[in-house]
C-alpha cells in the first residue's frame, strides 16, 4: 500500500481525525528534536519545546494549505519557537539582519562542493555547535534535515541567495575550526 504523504494526513487532521495527528507527530518528533538540540546547543527542555511546536502546529493546522509542502511549514513553526527560546535566553537574532538587507550574490557552488560536503559532514558534528546561530541553523537544516535551499528560505523567511551566502560562510567557518584543531593537534 502506498504510504500517505504528510499533506494527505494533514488533510485528514483538518477534517477532524485527531488520531491522524499521531502519525504526523511520529514522523516529525525525532526530526524536530534533532533540529532543536543542534540549533539550540542544548538537550535541556527539548521535549517541552517540541511538545510546544506540536501544540502550535495542531492549533494552527487549519491555516495550512494542503497544496503546499508540509515540511517547511512545520519547520517554520519550530524555527519561531526555537528563536524565541534563544531570544529568551541570550537576546540574539535581530530583525534587520545584515545578510538580508543588501542583495547578495548567490554563493557559487563549485564542482568540489560535494567532496567538500562529505569532508564537512564528518567534522560537522564536532564543530557545528561553535557556529553562530544564523549559520548553524542553515547548516543543520541542509545537512541534517536534508532541506533544500528553497525550503530553508521558506522556513527562515529569507531570500534563497541569503541561504546560499550563509551556507558558504558557515562552511568556511567550519573549515576554519577544523584547520585550527588540526594545528593544535600537531
Amino acid at each position: 500500500m502506498v504510504e500517505k504523504s504528510d499533506e494527505q494526513i494533514v488533510a485528514l487532521v483538518q477534517a477532524g481525525d485527531a488520531e491522524a495527528y499521531g502519525e504526523i507527530m511520529s514522523r516529525y518528533e525525532n526530526k524536530l528534536k534533532r533540529y532543536a538540540w543542534r540549533f539550540l546547543n542544548t538537550r535541556e527542555e527539548i521535549d517541552d519545546l517540541v511538545q510546544d511546536v506540536f501544540i502550535k502546529t495542531y492549533t494552527n493546522i487549519k491555516s495550512f494549505n494542503t497544496s503546499l509542502r508540509f515540511s517547511p511549514w512545520i519547520y517554520r513553526i519550530a524555527h519561531n519557537t526555537f528563536v524565541n527560546e534563544l531570544k529568551r535566553k541570550k537576546h540574539i537574532f535581530n530583525f534587520f539582519d545584515s545578510d538580508t538587507i543588501l542583495p547578495l550574490l548567490a554563493s557559487k557552488e563549485t564542482a568540489d562542493a560535494d567532496t567538500m560536503d562529505n569532508e564537512i559532514n564528518e567534522e560537522l558534528e564536532i564543530f557545528v555547535e561553535k557556529l553562530p546561530p544564523k549559520y548553524r541553523e542553515v547548516i543543520v537544516l541542509h545537512y541534517f534535515e536534508s532541506l533544500s535551499y528553497q525550503e530553508i528560505s521558506e522556513v527562515l523567511h529569507i531570500p534563497v541567495t541569503t541561504v546560499g551566502v550563509r551556507m558558504t560562510r558557515g562552511r568556511n567557518k567550519l573549515k576554519g575550526y577544523y584547520q585550527l584543531s588540526e594545528q593544535n593537534h600537531e
Binding site: V13, Q14, A18, E19, Y21, G22, M25, S26, E29, D47, V50, Q51, F54, I55, Y58, T59, N60, I61, K62, S63
Partner: peptide
C-alpha cells in the same frame, strides 16, 4: 506511541488543545 505524542493526543481529546477554526485565519 511515546510520551509526547500520548500527552498531546490526550490534550486534544480532552479539548485542552484544539484547532482554531478556518474563519479565524
Amino acid at each position: 506511541m511515546n510520551n509526547i505524542q500520548e500527552k498531546i493526543l490526550n490534550k486534544i481529546q480532552s479539548g485542552e488543545v484544539y484547532m482554531k477554526p478556518k474563519w479565524h485565519f
